[in-house]
Design a protein around this nucleic acid. Sequence first.
DNA 1: CAACCTTGAGCACACGTGTGCTCTTTCTGT
DNA 2: ACAGAAAGAGCACACGTGTGCTCAAGGTTG
Lengths: 335, 335
Amino acid sequence: MKNRVSIKDIAQLAGVSHSTVSRALQGTGRMSEETRERILTIAEELGYTPDALAQSLVRGRTKTVGVVVTTIADPFVAGIIDGIEQVAGDAGYTVILGASHMDPEREMAVVENLRQRRVDAVIVTASRVGSHYTEHLQRFGVPIVLVNNMVEGEYLYAIACDQREGARCATRHLLELGHKRIAYVGSPFREHSSQERQQGYEDALHEAGVTPDPSLISTPPLTQDVAVGRRAFQELWPQRPTAIFAYNDLTAIGIMLAAREMRVRIPQDISLVGFDDIEVTEYVTPPLTTVHQPRQAMGRAAMEMALGLLHDERVQNQRLACRLVVRASTQAPPA
Amino acid sequence: MKNRVSIKDIAQLAGVSHSTVSRALQGTGRMSEETRERILTIAEELGYTPDALAQSLVRGRTKTVGVVVTTIADPFVAGIIDGIEQVAGDAGYTVILGASHMDPEREMAVVENLRQRRVDAVIVTASRVGSHYTEHLQRFGVPIVLVNNMVEGEYLYAIACDQREGARCATRHLLELGHKRIAYVGSPFREHSSQERQQGYEDALHEAGVTPDPSLISTPPLTQDVAVGRRAFQELWPQRPTAIFAYNDLTAIGIMLAAREMRVRIPQDISLVGFDDIEVTEYVTPPLTTVHQPRQAMGRAAMEMALGLLHDERVQNQRLACRLVVRASTQAPPA
DNA sequence: CAACCTTGAGCACACGTGTGCTCTTTCTGT
DNA sequence: ACAGAAAGAGCACACGTGTGCTCAAGGTTG
């Protein structure tokens, strides 16, 4: 029952060769208007659909991009894919998905699969891209774009978000409100990224002439963001900071929970800023001031970069700006 | 620079025909152990990767599933895709993505694209599948599985979540706590789904011998879930319900916001139950009692169904059960 | 020693599409 | 009227892989 109508079938009915049909369909070649119309009519009647596989085989490109992710369930990743898909769709490209689920073996399998499918380009998002792995990717022979990745080899193209600058904005916001004792809570299992944000935090402090206090920096070695925030607040509160800048929103939420248990009010007693602008932040109590990462825009930029590479254009790595979103969790420090 | 090594290249180096190489690689056919090993060694050295396109062309199947969604950015959809991807990956299938972004024209283009790519099966999630659309899909000639869809033609296979039963559980939970005046807030732009849940709500009331009070049902005609909840609470509160069952979590959050503004305490003054169990619910204040929809499981079930259909097994539509998650937004009614 | 079987490998075609070249027919220009 | 150009269409090969059939060489059996 499968749709097995090929240009040969059309050719037979039209009394011409399959070559003529092929040319008629793509509008190339010279032929009488009559023949062309007859062919198109028959194609329509038969419900003909070109076979993308055969076309790819002979044309040498598949009009597909492989997207490698850890998991699609992460809203952050989903946002990026969404952006990629938009641009890809507009450009006539199709997205092929591959999820590694944090399993190195599976990640290899995914990459191998994309290779077999002859994708024209690969976009890798939020992966640890070890040196061994990059090598494997290099051999691939197609453009590779990394999104929000830790490592940035000079030979790889990458789209990233300027986390350091984002962290600087967030911290400056607190400084402008009049805070001096500002704490930072990092992420123990995302070292590179956490350090970037910590540097932005320190940048802002230096600019304001405030010396960073090491006792106001905490990175409890736990594996869950919320738990990290919780523990960190318990450790930090005795130092009496007037504000906390958290690695990300979930960490900030952990802080909120701990604060509530300890009867510390936000923002009256202490201000709080997160990072990422996940959906939740708008609805927690109080709504959280945070740094928005342009996930869709990053996805779009990545796909645009991939398209550029496919057209042999010269492209350069991009750092997209983060945007501070001020909500109700920050105010001037208590007198 | 592209990896253009084919079995012919291997054949030439090994001094055999490409047929022999083909058989050596897939382990079929008879040949001396020596020849086989020589071929495999050369393939390895050349970094040979089979061309999935060519294989698909001759084998008549692509080992791919097309997944049609409205948008990937919706966490609900992302969860389903995640489930699909897991099962697909294990079975050696690859996921091809197509997002419609609510644009009918684009949706058609997406389906056409999947058809050209000769996917072996299609999974459609959370779409309105009009009659015109289903017809188009039918002509496709491949197994189609619908996930959580409004319409369920008899001829289409579908995976759904038993929303009515989920709503019944939620309402029963409130009844068991002692509530009698329980309100329902629906969704104006998801009629079918909202009615299902309302029916479950009424089922539970009838079972408990409570007559539904029409003045306790509200569905403000707004376009945003949170806004719907807000408005609904303002309308409902004068009727003095002791509990509200909301169409979904965002609606429930709207209710929470309005309640807070009006100095109505949850759960002391009124209990609240949501639906979907989105990530937020765990972190709002108070954490929301809600009905969990097994998104990953639905995705997995859909893919398993697709696999069954591909193996010509007899499959039947499934309704997965929802699970009530009791958190802190519900308690016995005030005396 | 002849008839038969087994092993090892190649030829040729298939899948569906694109394209350079060739051939015939008709039109154009002188 | 004749040479040349241009139109219209087909032949044959290509892309990379799979597979039925054939065929030669060697081995076994009666």
